[in-house]
Amino acid sequence: MTARFLAATALVASFATATYADMARYELDPTHTVVYFTIDHLGYAKTLGIFTNIEGSFAYDLDTQALEDVAVKIQAASVNTFNEARDGHVRNADFLDVSNYPEITFVATGGTPASETTGTVTGDLTILGQTHPVTLDITLNKVADYPFGHQKEVLGLSMTTTIQRSAFGMMYAVENGLVGDEVTINIETEAIKDE
């Protein structure tokens, strides 16, 4: 199980060395991958938002736990806060400025297992053209062949992290406290082995 966990953390981490020929390709399943966030609104409650356009892939060797070519990309304009007027505001220059910065990206730099099914992954998050390191807490949910359909091996992960949006230059309503600075980010994903 430990080897399986290291394999899963290798989604966004770099372990060992292997030739590319030995690597298997994995694709994030867009129908089973979601990134969602919560942020404080006026101190009353947290507002929920999700991103609906996410893609990612990586090369991975099950035997060595080696990983290459990690690429995760979110289309910023796909943000959905379940309110049309608010969505428009979140997409404009006060927040995500999607016209000038259409993509949010994450690239891994390392990972550390804490138990058979938990650990952390560090990486570089880019929002509004600014890149800062973040640490994700990871839980390995399952590694198994899919029970129907494609029946390929699937890695299932839950991840969470917290960022300060002001660190990325997103200063709107931070000083007056109308909108929180701290953003909690959650990721649920299934990655399918490409055979």
Rank of each mutant, 00 (worst) to 15 (best):
residue 69 D to M: 07
residue 101 Y to K: 08
residue 106 F to Y: 15
residue 134 V to Y: 10
residue 104 I to Q: 09
residue 1 M to C: 00
residue 130 Q to H: 05
residue 108 A to N: 07
residue 136 L to C: 06
residue 28 L to F: 15
residue 128 L to M: 07
residue 63 D to L: 05
residue 99 S to A: 14
residue 5 F to K: 13
residue 174 V to D: 06
residue 195 E to S: 10
residue 176 N to G: 02
residue 77 A to K: 08
residue 157 L to N: 13
residue 84 E to W: 00
residue 119 G to M: 09
residue 119 G to V: 04
residue 66 A to F: 08
residue 130 Q to N: 12
residue 86 R to E: 01
residue 60 Y to M: 13
residue 70 V to Q: 15
residue 141 N to T: 08
residue 43 G to M: 06
residue 107 V to M: 06
residue 188 E to M: 02
residue 71 A to C: 07
residue 51 F to N: 03
residue 99 S to K: 13
residue 45 A to V: 06
residue 94 D to N: 07
residue 177 G to Q: 00
residue 186 N to I: 02
residue 118 T to S: 12
residue 193 K to D: 04
residue 37 F to C: 11
residue 168 F to D: 07
residue 193 K to T: 07
residue 180 G to P: 03
residue 5 F to W: 10
residue 145 D to G: 10
residue 134 V to N: 09
residue 63 D to S: 12
residue 122 T to F: 00
residue 117 T to V: 13
residue 119 G to I: 05
residue 7 A to N: 13
residue 144 A to Y: 07
residue 188 E to F: 03
residue 8 A to G: 13
residue 26 Y to F: 15
residue 47 T to G: 05
residue 181 D to H: 05
residue 91 R to A: 13
residue 195 E to P: 02
residue 45 A to T: 15
residue 145 D to C: 02
residue 117 T to L: 12
residue 38 T to F: 01
residue 63 D to F: 00
residue 110 G to E: 04
residue 123 G to S: 07
residue 158 S to M: 06
residue 88 G to A: 15
residue 74 I to H: 05
residue 98 V to C: 03
residue 155 L to A: 14
residue 100 N to T: 11
residue 157 L to C: 11
residue 194 D to E: 14
residue 87 D to N: 15
residue 13 A to V: 08
residue 137 D to W: 05
residue 171 M to A: 11
residue 163 I to R: 07
residue 189 T to R: 01
residue 19 T to G: 15
residue 177 G to K: 00
residue 59 A to F: 13
residue 97 D to G: 01
residue 89 H to T: 09
residue 84 E to H: 02
residue 65 Q to D: 06
residue 37 F to H: 05
residue 186 N to T: 13
residue 45 A to C: 05
residue 135 T to L: 10
residue 38 T to K: 12
residue 26 Y to C: 08
residue 7 A to V: 01
residue 141 N to R: 05
residue 134 V to W: 10
residue 39 I to V: 15
residue 158 S to V: 04
residue 57 S to Q: 14
residue 59 A to D: 15
residue 81 T to K: 01
residue 5 F to L: 14
residue 90 V to G: 07
residue 62 L to F: 14
residue 56 G to C: 06
residue 104 I to H: 04
residue 8 A to Q: 08
residue 1 M to K: 02
residue 189 T to Q: 09
residue 119 G to A: 06
residue 59 A to Q: 14
residue 139 T to I: 11
residue 187 I to W: 08
residue 58 F to V: 15
residue 169 G to D: 11
residue 65 Q to F: 03
residue 155 L to S: 10
residue 28 L to V: 14
residue 32 H to I: 09
residue 56 G to F: 07
residue 190 E to A: 02
residue 165 R to L: 05
residue 109 T to I: 03
residue 126 T to F: 10
residue 47 T to P: 00
residue 121 V to S: 03
residue 16 A to Q: 10
residue 155 L to N: 03
residue 67 L to I: 09
residue 166 S to Q: 10
residue 40 D to C: 02
residue 14 S to D: 13
residue 58 F to M: 15
residue 27 E to N: 14
residue 140 L to T: 14
residue 184 T to L: 13
residue 138 I to S: 06
residue 15 F to W: 12
residue 74 I to S: 09
residue 68 E to R: 13
residue 96 L to H: 06
residue 101 Y to N: 15
residue 30 P to K: 10
residue 108 A to L: 09
residue 20 Y to A: 12
residue 65 Q to R: 08
residue 64 T to Q: 02
residue 55 E to R: 14
residue 179 V to N: 02
residue 115 S to Y: 04
residue 195 E to D: 13
residue 66 A to L: 04
residue 16 A to C: 05
